[in-house]
């Protein structure tokens, strides 16, 4: 059997309740159902997760790496966008 024609899927796993799904890798599968099952077998066999999303890689629209300088570099010089100039009052946790 050849998997040459099977589409590629991106796999997202939520490790526990309350956290968001995180991208963990990709795999090949004939359809969405098979992709979820393959993801279960490949990516959750060591109890990594409790929920799986799969998205066909074709459906992911990505930013163009060649535009990186115009897209991301301008932010590097804008340190004031980081809220690091505020004094956090004592007693505020989880900041």
């Amino acid at each position: 059997m050849s998997n040459a024609n099977w589409p590629l899927w991106e796999v997202f796993i939520r490790s526990k309740q309350g956290l968001s799904h995180k991208h963990v890798g990709s795999l090949r599968a004939a359809d969405a159902q098979m992709a979820v099952e393959n993801a279960r077998d490949v990516y959750t066999r060591r109890s990594e997760g409790i929920s799986i999303w799969v998205v066909q890689s074709n459906d992911v629209f990505a930013s163009d790496p060649s535009e990186a300088d115009s897209l991301y570099e301008p932010a590097d010089s804008k340190v004031y966008r980081h809220p690091t100039f505020y004094d956090v009052p004592d007693g505020i946790s989880h900041m």
Partner: peptide
């Protein structure tokens, strides 16, 4: 296995 993913599934 016919494909890597199924190989792991069958081993599981």
């Amino acid at each position: 296995g016919p494909i890597l993913e199924e190989d792991i599934a069958m081993t599981n």
